[in-house]
Nucleic acid binder design. Structure first.
Lengths: 341, 341
DNA sequence: GACGGTTCCGTAAACGTTTTTGGTGCCTGT
DNA sequence: ACAGGCACCAAAAACGTTTACGGAACCGTC
């Protein structure tokens, strides 16, 4: 005899009553409830989730899918650790648990997601690293699984998302560089079809136009989102015949590689090439010269993600009357020395 | 009508037969099996995990617990992502899924683990960042949950673990520095009671003794495992009246902070202070002067963890006749310029 | 032609919960 | 004394699977 049945037998009451007592129903006497709770604590009873899920049709867990294959993820897990913490802090208040679902490098993300959806392992999902056309979004809407995307996408249909302000980062980067006298400004964009690259590029183009600067296609530099990509970026820039005098970056680790490339050429960030990096992180804070980049609170971002997800789950929506959240997450410019002329 | 019942109805056969066909049982004709598989694929049928778990008493998932609170985790670049990938590659071969369980900053790890065990969300567990006395180990053995620890511990009882070679890293670091003529060698150790600190320290002490060097307690420097800890470490070293000429590090990001601290003092790693770092990572590869540190394959480590776990699960043990794995994971020294005299 | 063996499949129980339904006993007001 | 209401609880159904059991059909053998 196990589980709730055992508990009921010990107390000499029915399992239904035990269940009601544990779940805080009203139709059970205070005395009985107290006895049940005491006995449950004494034997360390925890409801079996499988039985519960089967009956209620939910799992009290939500998933956060991360793609190990996407270089933008596999290179920096300080990002997700921070976000997880924020998401958790929202979810635990509602007795929901967070599980991270790491999609293997060698599996198609959509296939992986479909498997997870089918298994009914979670009640809701957060997906990240959205691509320009992201079939996961279709999958989730079709399956009617509540979700929120960390990242916009060009996929049609209305769905909740929160995205970093790639547009604003590009725009403000250009503004700042133009104000400092630069006119040949390069932009690093990712070499794959992750959506943030397009947003970043659009912001870059719009800013150039607003300043009346010509758009030189050779200044749009496609490199992988990794520290090696930054190294390559540095090489590409240095080997151009008509070098840009400044560059804006779309990913945090690029700065590392470009710093190295400049150092090897005997050049210095800020003096020989103005650099505006992306996200401030533990590494960027310790680079010298100090990197000009943008700050955001990972924990707050996680909280916002958690709340948006809850807002789109019928069972919790009343506590979070946010409607469908489509939100651009602001980032604060932190001036450093890497973009001094 | 949903799930397997729907499938059976469409095919006009019993649900038992459908289940047997899907699960590869022998007592079903090849023709029937083919029809079932086709129909299942056509309607995108995926077995409901709750029903399955309830019946079979397992979940076909294993968990990887990470503590967001431990600074050694929340800061570590790339570490877990790489390990996850290796674990996955082993598990998927056996149709097991990996879920990462991030323990919130503000929750006690043991309490969190107990909740997860109680929910019966996973069949097995990998825990990391083991402490000197780690109650999670008692919890897991008592609950008879198969697990493997990434990290040794002083907790009694036999249990499977894999640990990085902190002892060897400390020993070889000292050897190398002594060979280069150093005699005052400092060691950074974590300021909390994570077990790796004790192992590292023991290796350091043993190496000193073997070389006939005195043990100076003031050279054992306790700092948080973060880039800020490294900054503080650098400060502490520079402000000593009888400065060490070399230091060995126990955590990868420490190097970042100490580099910065030296730079601010107009000093240079390798010339003014010999530094041997810990794990080679994307960041260390781009530091200058290049950091002398140790290399390991995260993916292989993940594979080893996955295999050890399977070896300790009765249902899979026959495929992995490893016995109880207690293994020290070797790390390869990568010479750089940071420890040149 | 009875019989044992094999191959295939249907039936039903079981897993641990939650929730609906119904019922018992007690109290209250008339 | 009796109808009605209330507070509490027992019983049983339901969730979607897997699997033990038994039986039907077919085959070959003496």
């Amino acid at each position: 005899m196990k589980g709730i049945r055992r508990l009921a037998q010990d107390l000499n009451i029915s399992i239904g009553t035990v269940s009601r007592a544990l779940n805080g129903r009203t139709d059970v006497s205070e005395d009985t409830r107290r006895r049940v709770l005491e006995a449950a604590a004494a034997m360390g009873y925890v409801p079996n989730q499988a039985g519960r899920s089967l009956r209620q049709g939910n799992t009290n867990a939500i998933g956060f899918m991360i793609e190990l294959g996407a270089d933008i993820n596999s290179n920096s897990d300080t990002f997700f650790m921070g976000v997880f913490d924020g998401v958790q802090s929202v979810l635990t208040r509602h007795h929901l648990d967070l599980v991270a679902l790491p999609c293997p490098t060698d599996e198609d993300p959509s296939a992986y997601l479909q498997r997870m959806i089918g298994r009914r392992l979670v009640d809701g999902l957060i997906i990240s690293a959205t691509h320009r056309k992201d079939s996961r979004i279709d999958l989730l809407t079709k399956a009617r699984i509540p979700f929120v995307a960390l990242g916009r996408s060009m996929t049609t249909g209305d769905y909740p998302w929160i995205d970093l302000d790639f547009d604003g980062v590009a725009r403000r980067g250009v503004d700042r560089l133009v104000a400092a006298g630069h006119s040949r400004i390069a932009a690093a964009v990712p070499s794959n079809d992750i959506n943030l690259g397009f947003v970043f590029l659009d912001g870059y183009k719009a800013a150039l136009k607003r300043h009346g600067l010509p758009l030189d296609p050779s200044l749009i530099m496609r490199v992988p989102s990794s520290e090696l990509g930054g190294y390559q970026l540095g090489h590409d820039i240095l080997s151009m015949k008509d070098r840009p005098t400044a560059v804006i970056l779309n990913y945090e680790l690029l700065a590392l590689g470009i710093y190295r490339q400049l150092a090897e050429a005997g050049l210095q960030p800020g003096r020989d090439l103005a650099i505006i990096g992306f996200r401030e992180n533990p590494v960027s804070r310790f680079m010298s010269p100090r990197l000009t980049c943008f700050r955001l609170s990972l924990r707050d971002l996680g909280i916002a993600l958690g709340e948006s997800l809850l807002a789109s789950m019928p069972a919790y929506a009343d506590a979070y009357p946010l409607g469908m959240v489509q939100r651009i997450w602001p980032m604060e410019l932190i001036p450093g020395e890497s973009d001094r002329v």
